[in-house]
């Protein structure tokens, strides 16, 4: 019976949200919903483009920051460092993974936002309050580091010892071995870990909401505020019942989130499973 609940969950989620978002889908065409920036709930106009744009921008920036760090850390921990290091680092990663997102948000307000408004932005000659796409991306990147790093460590550990040994026996240096043998072997795994991080970042709500500024616009630079999809849903849940079709639009927003995240995860799983059968 409980297994039944599990099996039914994804279907229930999608059908339930689709059912709720039906009325907004009737009133507006799908392309209007996805590619229009016009957001006027009172006139029944719901264009999600600026929200989707913000979401994608924040997520991409966060990945840009965290993926290189994770990759270097994983290579160092599995290839160069003594195994003691890994034993010390593992609890740190686990604790970092366990910290609630609200704490990351508070930390973002305490540290990252002032840092950006006082030091980073003036360096580029820009004035900003600090609540910006960049702040959201930095906080997010810290949040997804433990997820990506954990998967990467697993993948690097699973590569058999003989491959690098063979490469070194042929006269390659350590770094050449890592570059041409290990990274190539681990490539599908790396891609899927990045996709996992991406889906995690895409759906993150509270921490991003607190630092990203929440202004519905197409940001021109990363120092301007944005308004990602999850923040939109969380911020407007209170008033959504008073305006017709508003709740339906927000449910459609969560449907977009769900579908995108499911697709990301599906792709990553496919990559990993194909990779597992290869070894």
């Amino acid at each position: 019976m409980f297994l039944g609940i599990i099996l039914a969950m994804p279907v229930l989620l999608i059908v339930g949200l689709l059912f709720k978002s039906e009325s907004v889908l009737h009133a507006n065409s799908l392309s209007d919903l996805l590619f229009s920036t016009e957001w006027k709930p009172f006139q029944g106009k719901f264009g999600f483009y600026s929200y989707i744009y913000s979401s994608v921008l924040v997520t991409m920036l966060a990945l840009l920051i965290s993926v290189p760090i994770c990759l270097f850390a994983a290579i160092y921990l599995t290839q160069y460092a003594k195994s003691v290091y890994l034993k010390v680092i593992q609890p740190v990663i686990d604790i970092l993974a366990g910290i609630p997102s609200i704490i990351f948000g508070v930390w973002g307000i305490l540290v990252i936002v002032p840092l950006i408004s006082h030091y980073v932005a003036p360096f580029f000659g820009i004035e900003t309050a600090g609540y910006s796409i960049l702040a959201g991306a930095v906080v997010l990147s810290v949040m997804i580091i433990p997820f990506i790093l954990n998967i990467l460590l697993e993948i690097f550990k699973s590569i058999s010892k003989e491959l690098p040994q063979a490469s070194i026996a042929l006269g390659a240096t350590k770094w050449q071995t890592i570059k041409y043998v290990i990274l190539r072997k681990a490539f599908p795994g790396i891609v899927s870990s990045v996709v996992f991080g991406m889906s995690r970042a895409f759906g993150e709500t509270i921490a991003v909401l607190m630092v990203v500024g929440n202004v519905a616009q197409i940001p021109k630079t990363i120092f301007e505020p944005g308004y990602p999809l999850p923040a939109l849903i969380a911020n407007n849940y209170g008033e959504m019942l008073s305006i017709p079709n508003y709740d339906s639009a927000l449910m459609f927003a969560s449907l977009i989130l769900l579908v995108i995240v499911l697709l990301f995860n599906l792709a990553a799983r496919m990559l990993i499973s194909r990779y597992e059968t290869k070894i």
Partner: peptide, 24 residues
């Protein structure tokens, strides 16, 4: 297959669960 499904569900953002729970 069930493991695969569970991994998919693991990735679903909590706000989606919240919105779904709310509509139910």
């Amino acid at each position: 297959g069930v493991r695969f499904l569970l991994d998919l569900l693991w990735g679903v953002p909590s706000i989606v669960y919240g919105a779904f729970g709310f509509s139910v």
